[in-house]
Design a protein around this nucleic acid. Structure first.
Length: 413
RNA sequence: GUGGCUGUAGCUCAGCUGGCAGAGCACCAGAUUGUGGAUCUGGGUGUCGCGGGUUCAAAUCCCGCCAGCCACCCCA
């Protein structure tokens, strides 16, 4: 009789298994601890949002639509699985009147995001991000603050060897003029550029600067730099951010080719890489200022800055420390399920306990307990159970003694 | 979405031009005379990703699909 196909996980998603969870938990906990130390509060927003919210935040391209997990629900509403956290956090900020409270609102969020792209290692259709946002202030100190949070968090996780890349992309006042200059620079060079870059000269010239195409590289170095064309306000902001980072002893490198493709991004942009990484693929965190987003969502213009970091990549880089979750294994000799579970219940007041209920030889159970890394083994047979005693074996000392059940918790503590 | 590589035991993989499915590790059982990590002995645990096709015969050749990986696109 043919077995039906076993049902497997949806393409591009993965299970995070018990062996990896402690690592993830460490990353999540220290994110919360660091953010809270800076006065940030946790917020949880839905993973589904009106598709329009997401689409307005990403007006740009066909590619955007292509990678959005989008569907129509039973009430004919267009729904999107959130591809990033910021749009939803900003929505919640206004919808729950945080804009009426003390500014800025300092918020962080940890949760799953969704992107419908082709999966490969480290790129999943469901992935997890830490998102830190300071909404409601245009102050450069907040730019520096979120960078410091990102840096502190990664350092805490043992990923302290970082390269922080920094740039400013101006705002609606100074950027248009700069873009004209950039177009003027690139137009005569058009036929030397990649097809994609040729298209971008008129469509999205800023993106010419971060082109990865080989033939575009020579022209980037001579391209006009936006940091040379900032208006007074942006210029002051830009130097203030750097001054604050210097004062905090946070090292960074200026990368004039670091940009964002969407209009609502303003001024500061940054990305954080592990020190060894060369490729753009390897960013551990990225963020910046998005003073135009609130307005793009239809809310009052409100300045904000933040960053997001992919936990999949971060946990991947963290050294895996292995500690056995089970301290004690109870081994009944014979048909003693009831006694063994009572014994385990007693031991559990003091330590993590698992019972080996399998009907196999004691030797085999010992082997298995040993492989699990159990510190203690508690063995009991029928005669001992009737006297309410058990053999407590110290697996590291290879010694065992007879112990009364009631004494076990103190012996295991 | 585009291009390429891959898919055989729980894991890593071998299986040349078609001829009854293999290794190491893991796992299970036993021995080493009471109860563990070492050693020894024994055990293959498998819809060869799925579905078609060619053939006397397909893991092997052909087509389609699915999945993973790499690069691109993208990373809001």
């Amino acid at each position: 009789m043919p077995r039906p196909e076993p049902i497997k996980a949806v393409r591009g998603v993965r299970d995070i298994m018990p062996a990896d969870r402690p690592l993830w938990r460490r990353a999540e906990r220290s994110a919360a601890a660091v953010a809270e130390r800076f006065g940030y509060e946790e917020i949880v927003t839905p993973i589904i949002e009106p598709a329009e919210l997401i689409e307005r935040a990403g007006e740009d391209s066909d590619a955007f639509a292509k990678e959005l997990y989008r569907f129509v629900d039973r009430g004919d509403r267009a729904i999107a699985l959130r591809p990033e956290a910021t749009a939803g956090v900003v929505r919640a900020y206004f919808e729950h009147n945080l804009n009426q409270g003390p500014q800025p609102s300092r918020l962080y969020l940890i949760g799953p995001m969704f992107r419908y792209d082709r999966p490969q290692k480290g790129r999943y259709r469901q992935f997890f991000q830490l998102d830190v946002e300071a909404i409601g202030s245009a102050g450069p100190a907040l730019d520096a603050e979120v960078i410091e949070i990102a840096r502190d968090w990664l350092s805490t996780l043992g990923l302290g060897d970082l390269r922080i890349e920094l740039n400013s992309i101006g705002d609606h006042r100074c950027r248009p003029a700069y873009l004209e200059e950039l177009k003027a620079y690139y137009r005569p060079l058009a036929e030397n550029l990649s097809a994609e870059s040729q298209r971008r000269i008129e469509q999205n010239p800023l993106r010419l600067l971060d082109s990865k195409a080989e033939q575009d590289q020579p022209f980037k170095a001579r391209a006009p730099r936006i940091t040379d064309h900032l208006c007074d306000e942006c210029s002051a902001h830009w130097s203030a951010v750097r001054r604050l980072l210097d004062a905090a002893a946070i090292e960074y490198v200026l990368n004039p080719h670091l940009v964002r493709g969407l209009d609502y991004y303003t001024r500061t942009v940054f990305e954080i890489f592990p020190a060894g990484a060369a490729g753009q693929q390897d960013a551990l965190a990225g963020g910046g200022r998005y003073d135009g987003l609130a307005e793009a969502e239809g809310w009052p213009p409100t300045p904000a800055v933040g960053f997001a970091s992919g936990l999949d990549r971060v946990t991947d880089l963290m050294a895996a420390g292995d500690s056995s979750p089970v301290a004690v294994v109870v081994l009944p000799e014979g048909e003693l399920d009831v006694a063994a579970s009572e014994l385990a219940r007693i031991c559990r007041t003091a330590a993590a306990v698992a019972v080996d209920y399998e009907t196999r030889s004691l030797e085999s159970k010992m082997r298995s307990a040993s492989k699990r890394g159990a510190r203690w083994v508690v063995i009991v047979n029928e005669e001992e159970a009737s006297r309410r005693v058990a053999r407590l074996r110290d697996m590291t000392q290879r010694e065992q003694t007879e112990v009364r059940w009631e004494e076990l918790p103190t012996r295991l503590a």
